[in-house]
Design a protein around this nucleic acid. Structure first.
Length: 494
RNA sequence: GCUCCCAUCGUCCAGCGGCCUAGGACUCCGCCCUUUCAAGGCGGCGACGCGGGUUCGAAUCCCGUUGGGAGCACCA
């Protein structure tokens, strides 16, 4: 059997990491099995869906490299792939199901159902009571005459519903525990309860991998598939696999309102697709017992749905960053440099159109930055000292207070004269000169000796390696900064 | 309330009857390397919720219990 998996989001809000994780697992599953991935848009709720969300979804998926074989943008043999364009199909299927007695017209309002429950001494939360199942034609005519338009409900079978879940094993819902669901509104609009299984059936989906939140709706979906089988629309019910929740802080689902849930939030912080994808794959799955960093091809090669954990997974930013950092370090320097530029522009470190000279400077410092960041946005404070206009260069106050106390004056003096007499300005010469005068002659501990110079030159106590930084900064600017720092210590002294 | 799901270190994952005095990763804490910060190396802290079974043998299977979570719309 050829695998046909699908990803069918409804375009509401920003792309949630849980949603993208679901997309990723479906994608990996399809690719691993040499199958087809169908992308379908479930936009049957005009009040919540938006074109903006749809575009954001495409953006997120494209950024992560998750592609599909059939979908609204690429077409396919089972289109259209937007539910808002499939109205006739749903009307036709609903009509056939109604005719076959699988669906029935129900006139009870929500209030009437609740009232009946209460009158019977039951909890209204039990939901619909299947009261309209066997209305006579006369009764229906009466109700219609009252101006009521019936909804269409699915007649649930009177037996336990069981399926073998791909990630959880056998799951059974007791007979009678799921009330007959509405599948078509009173005004004729089809609901998710109808459109989702109908489309999966018509699109010949073989494997439904979706979030655990949809698990309680599976019995009624299976019942609908069975009805579709009976009227000859499909041959068999697809397999289901319910993916674990993605949790946030505490013991609750990662909220849509939590910024952490937004894929773009992580992109803006400088996650690279390789890193975020790797981490997302770890939410409920693992490639091996002794390794958790892997490439996309490795993921595709190893992904087994039966290996997915049923446990809820917590989104751990720290671990995500660590994984991302490993992928960042694995980039070749040229690639890293190219990718970090937008983040430096966003941080105001580089102008919109960096000059060749600026890019050359960036390339020079890049290898040392690359191994110091977990996310790309962290590069900005590491390199800004190279790109500020000299008159605007101002060391961090906290760093100055800590490292440029008056007692370092003699060391700065010695450093200046040693540096001024250098005829070659490269990291090695700078290191030798500085070590010679500060460590050997003045006898200072390296840590104590170099921190003031670091702060003087880079403006921070944390920076890329000092001597290389000075080399790249250039003799003139480096010396000016050390001199300026020296002036400040004198001023502070006085 | 009803239905369903879940249950191993703080977190995620490994374990699918003996290889487990339970392994890896993140975090945290030491040490090494070192001009800072990282990276890297070494080491440490740290878990099978509880109770019954089944079995020669259970983290692994079954039942119960406790604890978490989700769903219960003319939303998806």
């Amino acid at each position: 059997m050829t695998v046909r998996a699908r990803f069918c989001p409804s375009p509401t809000g920003a792309p949630h990491v849980g949603l993208i994780r679901t997309a990723l697992f479906n994608w990996a599953f399809a690719r691993h099995n040499g199958g087809t991935l169908v992308f379908r848009i479930e936009d049957t709720d005009a009040s919540r869906d938006s074109e903006e969300s749809y575009q954001a979804l495409l953006d997120a998926l494209d950024w992560l490299g998750i592609d599909w074989d059939e979908g609204p943008d690429v077409g396919g043999a089972y289109g259209p792939y937007r539910q808002s364009e499939r109205g006739e199909i749903y009307a036709d299927i609903a009509g056939r199901l109604l005719e076959a007695g699988e669906l029935y017209e129900a006139f009870s309002t929500t209030e009437e159902v609740a009232e009946r429950r209460r009158a019977a001494g039951q909890d209204p939360q039990l939901g619909y009571d299947n009261a309209d199942r066997d209305l006579t034609e006369e009764r229906k005519a009466e109700l219609r005459a009252q101006g009521r338009s019936p909804v269409l409900r699915l007649r649930m079978p009177d037996r336990d519903l069981t399926w073998h879940d791909l990630v959880r094993g056998e799951i059974t819902f007791q007979a009678g525990s799921v009330p007959d669901p509405v599948v078509v509104r009173g005004n004729g609009d089809p609901l998710y309860t109808l459109t989702n299984p109908v489309d999966d059936a018509l699109m010949r989906i073989t494997h439904v991998l979706r979030g655990e939140d949809l698990l309680p709706s599976t019995p009624r979906q299976i019942a609908l598939y069975e009805a579709l089988c009976r009227i000859g629309v499909i041959e068999e019910v697809p397999a289901f696999g319910h993916l674990p929740y993605v949790m946030g802080e505490g013991n609750k689902k990662l909220s849509k309102r939590d910024p952490q849930s937004n894929v773009f939030h992580h992109r803006e912080r400088g996650f690279i697709p390789e890193g975020l994808l790797n981490y997302l794959a770890l939410l409920g799955w693992s490639i091996a017992d002794d390794r958790d960093v892997f490439t996309v091809p490795e993921l595709v090669g190893a992904f087994e749905i039966g290996q997915v954990s049923a446990n809820p997974a917590r989104f751990d930013v720290k671990k995500a960053e660590s994984i991302n950092g490993t992928h960042v370090r694995a980039l070749d320097t040229e690639d890293f440099t190219r990718r970090v530029v937008p983040y430096l522009i966003a941080a105001g470190v580089l102008p919109e159109e960096p000059s060749h000279e600026q890019l050359a400077t960036l390339r020079a410092i890049a290898p040392m930055v690359q191994e110091r960041v977990a996310v790309l946005s962290e590069a900005a404070p590491l390199v800004d000292f190279l790109f500020v206009d000299e008159q605007d260069f101002a060391p961090e106050e906290a760093a100055v207070a800590k490292a440029l106390k008056p007692d370092v004056g003699p060391a700065l003096d010695a450093a200046v004269s040693a540096l001024e007499s250098l005829d070659r300005w490269d990291a090695e010469s700078i290191e030798n000169a500085l070590k010679g005068v500060l460590v050997e002659e003045l006898g200072w501990k390296p840590r104590k000796a170099f921190t003031p110079i670091r702060v003087a030159v880079t403006g921070r106590t944390v920076s890329p390696p000092l001597f290389e930084s000075m080399e790249i900064l250039g003799r003139e600017r480096a010396l000016r900064r050390v001199n300026k720092a020296r002036e400040r210590t004198v001023a502070a002294d006085a």
